[in-house]
Design a protein around this nucleic acid. Structure first.
Lengths: 182, 182
DNA sequence: TGGTACATGTAACATGTTACATGATTAG
DNA sequence: CTAATCATGTAACATGTTACATGTACCA
């Protein structure tokens, strides 16, 4: 058996499979819900990683259920691989922010066009922030105590979006114009 | 000539080539300096994109200089392709934050190990913040007025790192332990 | 004259994205 | 009966990463 180098995406799937056997579809949705705010993945990727991990013996396919659902269960090898992954030092985050590129090259754009783009993106981030805050407010105390890490990752989103919005708001008028919706 | 779909990385190289013809090496360094905080790229990528863009006629190779430097100059086609790219609505940012994955799956880790990891990453971000703030303080007023966008992207970094550090600091003791260096 | 920084690139592979094809089940 | 949603996947391609090979010029 080749030593199969786990990537973070595959490892996350193993992480979720600790809870119960799941099919690709479940994993896509679970991942979206639980780590989607800071780790993106597509269905294609999930199915590919599952196939590769099944091949490598980290998960075992069960019997297909309704609608051809293919459940996978964690194996001992999978559990071991996950343990190894999770105890590694996590790497640095990657941020790729196209808006900042547009801004950096903003000299090539009419000022009001740039201002409009900034304005629109500010609105999106403000909305995302409201969304997180609504979620935060709805967490029952029991959950808060049982899953402090889940709350902490949500809080990260809140801190991040607040920073982004306040960054927009401190931009000089020369860049953002004065049409910004406060 | 195929219509050559520009990606953000390639477009950025064109952006820099507006200033003067440059070789791959210059572009790697310029990009690292000017957009590296929110857009990562490797030398390999740069050379590949340059080759592809030269092939597509967006840039023209000049005569090789010292140390085999291969300068590229923007062509009219390149200028046009850049204009088109920069006037597009920029897409959403992508964030991939491995530490948050480790935190989300932190139940599989001894609490003090998780706390140590968090502590270490807090220190890194605090250092990065100090670095940005030092840079910010060194900007001469003349530059500030001439290049507001460059200042704004740096300010983004500052806002971001402040948010990250303050997020670390509000984590419950149950997660971060009490060994955190304030 | 030997080490360091400069400079270019290729190759192989890993990961991520997009588009599409197929069919099952459920709700109206 | 039909549309929406569930569910699985493949294929093709784009992008990103890592490791390596090659040689140049400067400077101590």
């Amino acid at each position: 058996m080749a030593p199969f180098r786990l990537n973070a995406t595959a490892a996350s799937l193993l992480g979720f499979l600790h809870e119960r056997p799941m099919a690709g579809w479940d994993l896509v949705n679970t991942a979206q819900e639980r780590i989607g705010n800071f780790w993106s993945l597509t269905p294609s990727q999930v199915y590919r990683e599952l196939a590769a991990m099944a091949e490598a013996g980290l998960i075992a396919a069960g019997e297909r259920g309704k609608r051809d659902r293919q459940p996978y269960a964690l194996t001992d090898a999978g559990r071991a691989a996950f343990e190894e992954w999770v105890s590694q030092e996590p790497g640095t985050e990657t941020i790729r922010f196209p808006l900042l590129l547009t801004l950096a090259f903003g000299d090539h754009l009419p000022p009001d066009r740039l201002a409009a783009i900034l304005d629109q993106h500010r609105a999106k981030h403000a909305e995302q922030l409201r969304h997180y805050e609504r979620q935060r407010a709805e967490i029952p105390p029991s959950f808060r105590e049982a899953h402090p890490a889940a709350v902490a990752t949500l809080d990260f989103g809140i801190h991040y979006e607040r920073a982004v919005v306040s960054w927009f708001d401190q931009l000089p008028v020369s860049l953002r114009g004065d049409n910004a919706a406060q």
